[in-house]
Each structure stands twice: as structure tokens, then as C-alpha cells.
Design a protein around this nucleic acid. Structure first.
Lengths: 262, 262
DNA sequence: CGCAGTATTGAAATTTCTCAAGCCGAGTGG
DNA sequence: CCACTCGGCTTGAGAAATTTCAATACTGCG
């Protein structure tokens, strides 16, 4: 997490973008070149700072480079509901390319770095390059799949299973993104925020957490999650990663729209 | 709801498909022709019958023609969580074009008619016709927006507000689809199913419903919802239809990808 | 060192769920 | 035509879960 030069950062932006797109479809070399040619503005965001507000009409899309972001909605009474957590490589407001006004806000959970990519450039990309369009589309579909699982998680699971499921998902996704260190990953949420994510009070979070810790399943401290007993955690959560739609195989095309020639 | 001839039904399928696509983007005349040329298989589904199961790898996508569908997930213990309700014109498993295996099931709530459209044909459409691809993409994005609102609804609102919000959404969407009769629309769910949709017990649904009825906000009987006091219901629910991303204006392009020439 | 935000814990208040019984309307079959 | 049954709705009451309130400890940052 050392400071990176502007040059290094821009390289990282391109790499993340290409890698993520390639996970969701097979790109031509020209597609990769096109992705790398996107000019973005870099920005550092403070913890709890909003990047986009509900009601905004953004003209850029966010690519997360470092740190963790969250989306949330606010109720008339001021209650906050977190909707999703995001890791580097995610484009949490990609939908704004088609949905003009934000129905939710996007904020940083810790100190985060983001790249802002103008809609004009992204529109051009998806218009001219079907492979990129389909890869981006698929990203938003996986996003939706995660929302579905969140509905089920918050609606049908017990408090401790809910928390356990979140932990499974976060460690799994962090591993997937190459961000986990062994059985440990970043999870910089307060108990209060976890409550606003899982639809339970901060105190219930504390108690559910206590149970999981007591049973030797996890540790959560200093914004880091450590899974002690993965198998037991998965069992307790009823976690099945199928909904994350990660490719099982290597780099074979996952969509009907792969390379059209060698 | 009279019986329709096969010919009439097929016309209705095309009309629904074109109308829905046109709501999400500006189509060329050739796009419309292409949409109308999709060959689909018609099928009638009994109440509670599954159309697609969790774990399936469908090779068609469903377009709902008549009736109401729902998506749901099942937990290891057998508990069911409904994720969304669908009206005619919806394509509830369009994501299966890119996400090979279903992370949820799709079932009919009442006697429903669906058109099954082969992935091969839809793939061809979106590959060759950007306007159609973008319209379909946008449909899936609105879908995701509805999921987000469901997370907030189930996680942060009181029981009666939850129910009220669902009612607002259903009447609003039914009106939008031209299916409401005044302040009345179809809602063929049992209290038990409403509970599995909103994350509350059947008895809590009954009591929340009782409250809303008592205050003269709604009636719900025989699978029909009647809103008595729309303004009060909206206020009670904290309902703001922005998340449904319905075009405010007429037929102006809503995406950056409208007609490219007169 | 001390403040501010966060975590922990206990206990009361409230909500929500479960259990249980009765009711109602639709469909069935005598 | 009526009794019967079944599924769904309604209602009450006790049990359980959850939230709220409140007081205390911990931690990181200034």
C-alpha cells in the first residue's frame, strides 16, 4: 500500500480494467489497446467521503483502484442502508452509463483511490467494441447477482449466518481479486456499518460476531477479517459461491461472443 | 384475459418485446424488424410451477406475456426467498445470456403465458444490433435497481412501510405497463408468499396489512390490490419512483446510443 | 495524555415469531 | 343441495428474538 507514482498508478488503472474485462469475456488485442487508451482522472477519497450522491447525474464512471467503496441508499428518516461493498477492479457505478440519475450513493469506506472515466469515452468503447460492451454488461449482471444474494441473506438467514455469509463472500472475492493474504482480507467497516449493511442493529452485530468468534470461526479486528475455520464458516453461512459467477475454467470464452478469429 | 389465438399471441409477443425495448433505447426500424423476427416457443405455466430452476443452464430466455412471475432462491434448510415480481413485457432471466448457470429459480405466481426465446437468436441480435444490445442491457440495469430498492426495503423499513412500498411499486409498474385498472392491479400472492418476499412471517404480513387497511390506505383481496389513498400510501412507504428509471420525457433517446442517422 | 469514536456488556422494553384455534370461501363428492 | 375438506386468512397469547437504553472499556489519533 506504499505510495505509487502517478505513472505507476495509471498503469495499475489500465491493468485492472483489462484484467477485469478479460474475466468477463474474451477480448481482442485491439480491445485491450482500446481499454488502455481510456483517459481517466485519478482521485483520492477520504474515509466516509461520498464520491457520487443519490440524485446525481454523473458524466464519469468510477473504477476503484485501491481501498474499499460502498453503495448505499438513504431513507427519508435518515437511516442508511448499505447495498454492496467494492474491491479494486470494480466499477460500482457503471450503470450510470445508461441510468442517468443515481438511485444510490457511492462512498469510500477507507482511504481509497479511484479513477474517473468519462462516459463519453466509455460510450464510444461499448459502441465500437462489442467484446468490451459484453464484458461490461456481464460485470453489471454479476453485480445484480450479488444484490440478489444480499436480499436472500438479509431476508432469510439468522443474524450469525448473515454475518458469516458476508465474511465468506468478502474473503472469496478478495482472494479472487488477489487481495487476500492467506485467510485474511480487508473489511474496514464498523459494527454500526455492518448493521446498516445486514439489516440489524449494531448490538446484534456485536453479539453475532461474538458467537462466531467464540466458535473459532473468525476474527475481525482493526478492519481486517481473518477466517479461522473456512469449512465451518461456509457451512454455518450456507455459502455457495455459484452466484458470483466466477469462471471455473481458465481463459476460455465465457460468453457466446469470443474472438471471431484466431 | 380471454383466450387468444396463437396468431394473436405471437403478435402480442412481438409487440411487447418491441415496446419494452423501445422504452430503454431508441431503435432503428431495422431493429424493430429484427426483434419481430425472433422465433419463440409459447408456453402456459400453472400457478407455482417453476419455469427455470436454480442451477439450470438455460438455452432460452423468458419473455412474460400474461400473468405474473417471480424469482426466488432456496436456502439449504428449504426456506424460500422471493427476489422480484415480474409483469408482462419483462424478461426475468435475460441475464442467462451471459451468466451460464441460474443462481435463482423462476416460477409462475398465477396461470401465466411465456415466450421462450433461444439464446442463439438473442445473441445474434445483440451482436449485430447495438441499439438492441443497449436496450437489453438497460433492462437488466433497471432490474438491478429494483433489487437495490428491495435490499433497502427489507433491511431498513418497518413492516407496514415495507408492505406499503411493495404496493406502491407494484401499482406504479402495473400502470407503467398499462395493466392497472384505475387504482387496482393484480397481486396474486398469498400472505405467506408476501412474507417470503419481504423477509417477515405470514402473521406479521397479516398484521401489517391490517394496519394499512385500517388506515384506509389499501385493500388486498382475491389477488387484487386496490390503493385507496395513494398519497398517504406513498408517504407511509417513503416511495420515490426514481429508482425505476422510467423516462420522464416522451420518446427522446435515453441512452447515448440513439439513431445514428435520420 | 486525552478525546472521540468504537466495542462490549447487562438489562429493560419492544417487536417479531411461533403455536394454536377458529373462520371463511372455493371446490368436491355424496 | 349440503357436508366436507383444503388452503388461506384472522386473531389471541406466550415464547423468543431483537432493539433500545445505558454504562463502561478500549483504541487510534491528535
Amino acid at each position: 500500500m506504499a505510495e505509487e507514482s502517478d505513472f505507476e498508478l495509471r498503469k495499475r488503472v489500465s491493468d485492472l480494467l483489462v484484467a477485469r474485462a478479460a474475466e468477463h469475456g474474451t477480448l481482442l488485442e485491439t480491445d485491450e489497446v482500446a481499454l488502455r487508451s481510456v483517459r481517466s482522472r485519478l482521485r483520492t477519497v477520504a474515509p466516509n467521503e461520498d464520491i457520487v450522491h443519490e440524485g446525481d447525474r454523473p458524466d464519469t464512471a468510477v473504477l476503484l483502484v485501491n481501498g474499499m467503496l460502498a453503495r448505499y441508499q438513504t431513507l427519508p428518516g435518515g437511516e442508511r442502508q448499505y447495498l454492496s461493498l467494492h474491491l479494486p477492479g470494480d466499477m460500482p457505478d457503471l450503470q450510470s452509463l445508461f441510468l442517468d440519475v443515481m438511485d444510490h450513493a457511492l462512498c469510500a469506506l477507507d482511504r481509497a483511490e479511484v479513477a474517473l472515466m468519462p462516459h463519453t469515452q466509455l460510450s464510444k468503447l461499448v459502441l465500437e467494441r462489442p467484446a468490451i460492451a459484453f464484458a461490461f454488461w456481464r460485470m453489471t449482471l454479476v453485480d445484480a447477482a450479488i444484490f440478489r444474494q444480499a436480499i436472500t441473506n438479509n431476508g432469510a438467514r439468522s443474524h450469525s449466518a448473515r454475518l458469516a455469509h458476508l465474511f465468506c463472500e468478502q474473503l472469496f472475492r478478495s482472494k479472487e481479486a488477489g487481495l487476500a493474504e492467506g485467510r485474511t482480507c480487508s473489511l474496514p467497516l464498523t459494527q454500526n456499518q455492518l448493521g446498516q449493511l445486514l439489516g440489524m442493529s449494531q448490538i446484534s452485530v456485536n453479539r453475532a460476531l461474538h458467537k462466531l468468534r467464540e466458535q473459532g470461526l473468525v476474527e475481525l479486528r482493526f478492519g481486517r477479517l481473518t477466517v479461522i475455520d473456512w469449512a465451518a464458516l461456509v457451512a454455518h453461512a450456507g455459502f455457495d459461491p455459484a452466484y458470483l459467477h466466477v469462471a471455473k475454467q481458465g481463459v476460455l470464452p465465457r460468453t457466446p461472443f469470443g474472438k471471431r478469429h484466431g
